[in-house]
Amino acid sequence: MTDPGDDTPPDLPPPAEVPRPERRQALARLDRVCHEIARGNYGNTDDLFALTVDPDASQTIRELAESFGSMLVQVEAREFRLNGLIDDLREAQRQLEEANRQLARENVTLTQKVQTLTIEIDRQRFKREVGEIVESDYFQDLQKRARTMRARVKGVGGAQDEPKGEAGKSDARTSDASTSDAPNEPTPNGEPQDGQS
Score class of each variant (00 low, 15 high):
100 N>G: 07
91 E>H: 14
87 D>A: 15
63 E>V: 10
49 F>H: 01
54 D>K: 01
91 E>I: 07
120 E>N: 08
116 T>K: 12
58 S>L: 05
52 T>E: 03
112 Q>M: 10
77 A>C: 00
60 T>C: 00
104 A>W: 03
75 V>Q: 07
89 L>H: 12
71 M>C: 00
71 M>V: 06
82 L>R: 14
85 L>A: 14
84 G>V: 04
70 S>L: 07
112 Q>I: 00
57 A>R: 03
101 R>V: 05
102 Q>I: 02
49 F>G: 02
97 E>A: 15
81 R>A: 14
84 G>Y: 02
117 L>E: 13
112 Q>G: 09
104 A>M: 08
60 T>E: 13
115 Q>T: 07
50 A>I: 02
90 R>W: 06
53 V>Q: 05
114 V>A: 14
112 Q>V: 05
89 L>V: 08
57 A>K: 01
109 T>V: 12
74 Q>G: 06
74 Q>A: 15
116 T>H: 10
113 K>I: 13
118 T>G: 13
85 L>E: 15
117 L>S: 07
81 R>H: 12
73 V>D: 12
71 M>G: 00
107 N>F: 08
108 V>A: 13
118 T>S: 15
69 G>C: 02
84 G>P: 01
50 A>L: 02
65 A>K: 03
89 L>E: 10
64 L>V: 04
90 R>D: 14
117 L>A: 11
74 Q>F: 04
59 Q>I: 10
76 E>I: 09
74 Q>W: 00
121 I>T: 09
55 P>T: 05
90 R>Q: 14
89 L>R: 14
56 D>K: 09
101 R>W: 04
81 R>N: 12
59 Q>S: 08
92 A>T: 12
55 P>N: 02
109 T>F: 10
97 E>K: 14
87 D>T: 12
120 E>H: 08
73 V>C: 03
108 V>N: 06
69 G>W: 03
94 R>Q: 13
100 N>R: 15
49 F>S: 03
90 R>H: 13
100 N>Y: 06
118 T>N: 13
62 R>L: 01
62 R>A: 05
70 S>A: 08
79 E>C: 04
104 A>I: 07
51 L>Y: 01
103 L>D: 01
76 E>M: 14
60 T>L: 09
80 F>Q: 15
119 I>W: 03
101 R>D: 11
105 R>F: 09
106 E>F: 06
91 E>S: 15
98 E>F: 08
66 E>R: 11
51 L>N: 03
118 T>D: 14
118 T>C: 05
120 E>M: 10
106 E>N: 11
118 T>L: 09
62 R>H: 04
115 Q>A: 13
99 A>H: 10
118 T>I: 02
79 E>H: 08
55 P>C: 00
53 V>D: 04
56 D>S: 11
